[in-house]
């Protein structure tokens, strides 16, 4: 494109570059703050950390790792991410493959039945009451089973499998291979791009989940996840802030020394909860376009 460089376009460029850069800084700064606060010397940090480290120390990280229950919370978060992702990827891939088979009896009916779940749900409380009657309260399985078959992911796989050249599958079928064998030896290797998309988005979703922990497993400390642990720290800090506002200094001092979570622990736990996302982020970027097709796929 050839455009004259008028003063107007130069000014427009400056404004655009500035606005975009400013927004990017706003997005980056809170995360940067986590890093500089966590690794600053705690004593120095009291004077305020704003743009760069004040001293350098692993004190905060050591303190958080020493907290009771934090190892368990980390383990639970990792477990639910790994197991939950593995299971949902298998379920959605296999079911998507089965639904791609025209000869499946009742295919249209069952496929529709799965799709409808994207639009109609029981809602928060009916779902809670029914899951509770299944015994899914204080139970690790509540992190994994309800989301195992995701209609949206299943459609993605089905659409993908239907685009594959049928010749490979037919060749295997003629050689007498069963559906299962075709699925594992032909379909899976060819479907890696879509499987990777589903896996990475489910993994992020699992890692970030906390509400199921809150409503189903809140009374079960051994099932606490990292995100929920962080939420609890924040609630305590919130209480402290409210006390400060009321000017109840005595209570505040008592609270700080006894049970309330210091800022260092809070910030460091947040960093722990955010780091895995940063680590997979570069790998995720190539799947963005596929991932955003939510709603663009027809049932």
């Amino acid at each position: 494109m050839i455009h004259r460089k008028t003063p107007g376009t130069v000014a427009a460029n400056v404004v655009i570059y500035f606005l975009l850069g400013f927004f990017a800084l706003l997005c980056l700064y809170p995360f940067w703050y986590l890093v500089i606060f966590t690794f600053s010397d705690p004593g120095e940090a009291l004077k305020g950390v704003s743009f760069w480290f004040r001293g350098f120390s692993f004190y905060n990280v050591e303190q958080v790792l020493r907290l009771q229950g934090i190892d368990r919370a980390l383990l639970n978060s990792v477990l639910r991410t790994v197991l939950g992702t593995g299971i949902t990827v298998f379920c959605c891939t296999f079911l998507g493959y089965l639904f791609s088979k025209q000869e499946m009896p009742g295919r249209r009916f069952f496929y529709r039945a799965v799709i409808i779940t994207m639009y109609v749900s029981g809602g928060l409380i009916p779902t809670y009451l029914i899951y509770r009657s299944y015994g899914l309260t204080n139970n690790f399985l509540v992190y994994i089973l309800p989301g195992a078959v995701s209609a949206y992911n299943m459609i993605l796989v089905k659409t993908f499998v239907e685009q594959l050249p049928p010749a490979l599958e037919e060749a295997a079928m003629i050689d007498g291979a069963s559906y299962l064998r075709v699925f594992f030896q032909v379909i899976i290797p060819l479907s890696i791009p879509i499987i990777a998309t589903i896996a990475i988005f489910s993994a992020v979703g699992q890692w970030n989940s906390w509400f199921d922990n809150h409503i189903y497993n809140t009374n079960s400390p051994p099932l606490m996840t990292l995100q929920y642990q962080l939420y609890k720290f924040l609630n305590e800090a919130q209480r402290l802030a409210a006390l400060l506002k009321e000017g109840n200094i005595k209570d505040v001092e008592a609270a700080v020394t006894q049970q309330l979570t210091p800022k260092g622990v809070r910030v460091t736990t947040t960093l722990f909860a955010a780091v895995p996302i940063f680590l997979v982020y570069p790998f995720m970027q190539r799947y963005f376009i596929k991932g955003i097709m939510v709603g663009a796929v027809k049932g």
């Binding site: 970030n208 989940s209 906390w210 995100q227 929920y228 809070r266 910030v267 947040t270 909860a273």
Partner: peptide, 11 residues
């Protein structure tokens, strides 16, 4: 997650 966002904004 929104929990993390809340923590960032709280901080």
């Amino acid at each position: 997650s929104w929990v993390i966002v809340y923590s960032l904004m709280f901080t």
